[in-house]
Simulated assay, not measured.
Amino acid sequence: MVVDTNQSYIKQCFPILEERLYQEIISSCSYHEFPSSSYVVKQGAYLNFLPVVLKGRIKMYAEEEDVQFLLYYINSGESCILSFNHLFDPKPVQFSAITEEDTVVMTLPVNKVKEWFVKYPTFARIIINDFQRNFEDLLQTTKEIVCFGIEDRLVKYLENKAKRDNSQLIHLSHKKIALDLGTSREVISRITKKLEKTGILVQHKRYIELVNC
């Protein structure tokens, strides 16, 4: 039953796959279930597979000297393009991937990924589209760090979180937000108090409510 459900997820995520490629993926892939807040990949590891999120969401981030940098998010039907790069350049990965909710991940073996990339134009197109989407996400993150102050970055971060969850209620601690934005909990607490005074948000005991974004 679980396998049937996972195969259904593959169809939903990749409706343009040729039937022959779909069957090859089914016969070659493995499925892994991760509860929320679980590592799928840790920085410094070696990868011999391409992960594809069938259900759930994964946060990609990097760490440097105990400072964490949010890269982007992987949603259902999206491969992790950074790990795809590492398939052709076998070095330790420079990022970590952690689940934001209960997540089902399909892993594809390296040799098959390389074969399908050449053999099936639809598969290559999926990979290229992922590359473009995640490159744009990384570019936007870089622009925000370079051009925006921490207050503007925080507002944008909360807006994006609300959009992803389709909810104005942000269930994140100040510490978690600070880690994602590469700053301190004290800075986030100070700014959220300021934003509350200006009517942008309301702070509740266990969540933040966006009001005027």
Rank of each mutant, 00 (worst) to 15 (best):
P90H: 14
K91P: 00
K91R: 13
K91C: 01
P92A: 04
P92K: 08
Q94N: 05
F95T: 03
S96I: 00
S96Q: 06
I98G: 02
I98C: 02
I98N: 01
T99A: 05
T99W: 04
T99N: 05
T99F: 08
E100Y: 05
E101G: 01
E101F: 04
D102A: 05
D102E: 04
T107V: 02
L108V: 09
L108P: 05
V110T: 15
K112I: 10
V113H: 09
V113A: 11
K114P: 02
E115M: 04
E115N: 07
W116L: 09
W116F: 08
W116V: 06
F117A: 09
F117M: 09
V118R: 04
V118T: 15
V118L: 07
V118G: 04
V118P: 01
K119G: 08
K119A: 15
Y120A: 09
Y120T: 10
Y120F: 13
Y120H: 14
T122G: 08
F123S: 06
A124K: 05
A124V: 08
R125K: 13
R125W: 12
I127T: 03
I127P: 01
D130H: 10
F131D: 02
F131K: 03
Q132M: 15
R133Y: 13
N134L: 05
F135P: 12
F135E: 09
E136C: 14
L139F: 15
L139G: 08
L139Q: 14
Q140G: 02
T142N: 12
T142H: 14
K143N: 15
E144N: 12
E144L: 13
I145F: 14
C147V: 13
C147D: 13
F148R: 13
G149R: 11
G149H: 08
E151D: 13
E151K: 10
E151A: 10
D152S: 11
D152C: 03
L154K: 01
V155D: 09
V155Y: 08
V155L: 14
V155Q: 11
K156D: 15
K156A: 15
K156T: 15
K156E: 15
L158C: 09
L158Y: 06
A162M: 11
K163W: 09
K163V: 08
R164Y: 12
R164K: 14
D165M: 13
D165T: 07
N166H: 11
N166C: 09
S167T: 00
Q168F: 13
Q168Y: 13
Q168H: 12
Q168N: 15
Q168P: 15
L169M: 12
L169H: 07
I170A: 02
I170W: 03
L172N: 02
S173V: 02
H174S: 11
H174N: 14
I177P: 00
A178M: 01
A178V: 03
A178E: 00
D180P: 01
L181M: 04
L181Q: 03
G182S: 01
G182I: 06
T183W: 03
T183F: 03
T183E: 00
S184P: 09
R185T: 08
R185H: 07
R185M: 03
I188N: 00
